[in-house]
Amino acid sequence: MRAAVLRGKQDMTVEVGRPLSALKHGEVRIAVRACGICGTDQHIYHGHPGSAAVRPPIVLGHELAGEVIEVGDGVVGIKAGDRVSVDPNIYCGACEFCRNGRPHLCDRLQAVGVTRDGGMGELCDVPAANCYLLPDEVSDVEGALVEPLGCVLHGYKKLDVRPVSTAVIIGGGFIGQLFLQLVRKQAARVAVFEPVAGKRGQLEALGADDEAAVRAWAGKADIVIECVGRRQSMELAFAVARKGGQVLLFGVSSPETEISVSPYAIFSKELRIMGSFVNPFTHEEAIALIRGKAVDVEGLVSHRFALDEVPQVMGAYPMLNVAKGVIVHGR
Score class of each variant (00 low, 15 high):
residue 3 A to G: 09
residue 4 A to K: 09
residue 4 A to M: 03
residue 8 G to S: 07
residue 9 K to A: 03
residue 13 T to L: 14
residue 15 E to D: 12
residue 15 E to Q: 06
residue 17 G to F: 05
residue 21 S to N: 15
residue 29 R to G: 08
residue 34 A to P: 12
residue 34 A to E: 12
residue 37 I to P: 07
residue 37 I to N: 09
residue 39 G to M: 13
residue 44 I to T: 06
residue 44 I to E: 11
residue 51 S to I: 14
residue 54 V to G: 07
residue 56 P to Y: 01
residue 56 P to G: 04
residue 57 P to R: 11
residue 57 P to L: 08
residue 58 I to A: 03
residue 60 L to H: 05
residue 61 G to M: 12
residue 61 G to K: 08
residue 62 H to C: 10
residue 67 E to A: 04
residue 70 E to L: 13
residue 71 V to Q: 04
residue 84 V to R: 01
residue 85 S to G: 13
residue 92 C to Y: 11
residue 94 A to R: 15
residue 101 G to Y: 07
residue 104 H to Q: 14
residue 105 L to Y: 13
residue 105 L to S: 05
residue 106 C to I: 03
residue 107 D to Y: 04
residue 109 L to D: 08
residue 111 A to E: 01
residue 112 V to E: 06
residue 112 V to Q: 08
residue 115 T to E: 12
residue 120 M to Q: 12
residue 120 M to Y: 14
residue 123 L to P: 07
residue 133 L to G: 09
residue 133 L to C: 07
residue 134 L to Y: 09
residue 134 L to S: 12
residue 137 E to C: 12
residue 140 D to W: 14
residue 145 L to T: 04
residue 150 G to E: 00
residue 160 D to C: 02
residue 163 P to V: 06
residue 164 V to G: 01
residue 167 A to S: 07
residue 167 A to I: 00
residue 169 I to R: 08
residue 170 I to N: 02
residue 172 G to R: 10
residue 177 Q to M: 15
residue 177 Q to G: 14
residue 181 Q to Y: 04
residue 187 A to R: 10
residue 191 A to S: 13
residue 195 P to W: 06
residue 202 Q to G: 10
residue 204 E to W: 03
residue 210 D to K: 14
residue 212 A to S: 11
residue 220 K to A: 00
residue 224 V to L: 09
residue 225 I to T: 02
residue 227 C to Q: 02
residue 233 S to R: 04
residue 235 E to Y: 13
residue 235 E to R: 09
residue 240 V to P: 00
residue 244 G to I: 03
residue 245 G to I: 00
residue 246 Q to F: 01
residue 248 L to D: 13
residue 252 V to E: 07
residue 256 E to L: 09
residue 258 E to K: 15
residue 261 V to S: 13
residue 262 S to M: 11
residue 265 A to I: 08
residue 266 I to C: 15
residue 267 F to Q: 14
residue 279 N to S: 15
residue 284 E to R: 14
residue 284 E to H: 11
residue 285 E to I: 11
residue 287 I to N: 01
residue 294 A to V: 15
residue 297 V to C: 00
residue 304 R to E: 12
residue 304 R to Q: 05
residue 305 F to V: 04
residue 305 F to Q: 02
residue 311 P to W: 04
residue 317 Y to A: 10
residue 325 G to C: 02
residue 328 V to H: 04
residue 329 H to D: 03
